[in-house]
Structure formats: structure tokens, C-alpha cells
Simulated scan of single mutants.
Amino acid sequence: MTCPEGVIMSENSVIRKDRVNIDDDVIGIYHELTSKAEEGGELAPFRTHKDVFMLAVVLGYRRDMRRPAPSGAKHTIRREVFSEEDYQLLEAIAVATTGDVNVLLNQGEILTIAEEYAQAGIHDVKAELLDQGGQPLRNLVAMLVGKS
């Protein structure tokens, strides 16, 4: 099958060019890490779901864990929300994962790879920031400096 831009997709591929999906089963983690950000950040260290997603992608990649999102209800983040630096990181992870720079020609594949890493990594984010007790922001700092 060929999409309008001429990118060849397999029959099982979902044609999605401009957004990442977050599974409904884990969206509560995203909400918990962002819901209190406007109150000073102590309880919620992230301002946006995109920021949580980026950390989840990196943790999933670092641990070499990918998990396809289950079918069902999804929440989405549009491509436009990502800064150029965010997207360059997602591109670098896609190239490192596939070993093929041609992946850069397929935004849908880049976003799918990121989604799969985030789907696995969000559980690590939860374990590191929410399940240890204390304040999530302090847990984030401890994780980043290697004291978790």
C-alpha cells in the first residue's frame, strides 16, 4: 500500500503521519505528573504530556524496551507540539533503533517507534517518580543525578 506522499507502508501499518498515541491505560500517569505543575511544580514536575512522553521515550530506549500500545482508547499529542530539538531526538532514536537512515523519510515510523518506547518507558517513569514516595520533582532530580 502507498500513502499519498509515496511512502510504502505494509498492510498492517497504521497510516498516521502527525501524532503520537498514548494508551488510555497509562494516561493517568501523564495526568499525575502534570496536573499540579501550575501550582509550583513540587507535586508535578512536568508542564505538559509531551514532556512526560519525551522522558518515557528516553527511558524506554535506554532500557531497550518497546511495547506496542494496546488497541483501544487513545489520547494523542500532535507533531506540532514537539520542538525541533524534541523531534531531532526522536529521529535519532529511530535511526539508532532501525540502523537505517531511510527511517527519516517516514514520520509515521519515527512516531511509532517513539510511541513504543514511551509505552514501555512510562512504567519506569511511574516507578522512579511516583512509586518511591516523596515528591515527584525531587525523585526526578535524584533519578537524573543517579541517586535513585
Rank of each mutant, 00 (worst) to 15 (best):
G146V: 08
T76K: 07
V103P: 00
T97Q: 02
S71T: 15
L140V: 05
D24F: 06
Q119P: 02
R16F: 10
L104W: 03
R16S: 14
D64N: 13
I122N: 03
A120P: 01
A37M: 08
V20E: 03
E128T: 05
M1D: 10
E39K: 13
D86T: 05
A44H: 06
A69Q: 08
R78E: 14
A94G: 00
A56E: 03
Y87V: 09
S148E: 06
D23M: 03
S71I: 13
L144M: 10
L130A: 02
D23Q: 05
E32H: 13
R47Y: 15
S83L: 14
F53W: 07
M65W: 05
F53Y: 09
P68H: 09
K147F: 15
G41R: 05
P45R: 03
V20P: 01
H49K: 04
L89G: 03
V58N: 04
F53H: 07
P4M: 12
G133W: 05
I110N: 01
I15F: 12
A73D: 14
I122L: 08
E32Q: 14
L137F: 13
L33P: 02
R138D: 14
M65F: 06
T76F: 12
L104P: 04
M143P: 00
G28Y: 01
T76A: 15
R79Q: 10
K74F: 09
T76M: 10
D51P: 02
D25W: 08
S83D: 03
P45A: 13
E128C: 10
C3I: 15
D23P: 05
D86L: 07
E84Y: 11
I122Q: 06
I122D: 02
R63S: 09
I22R: 01
F82T: 02
E32M: 12
S35G: 11
K126Y: 10
A120Y: 01
G99P: 01
P68C: 10
E85V: 12
I113V: 07
M1V: 12
E80R: 12
V125P: 00
V26S: 07
E80W: 06
E116T: 03
V101L: 09
V125G: 04
L137N: 07
I15C: 15
N106S: 11
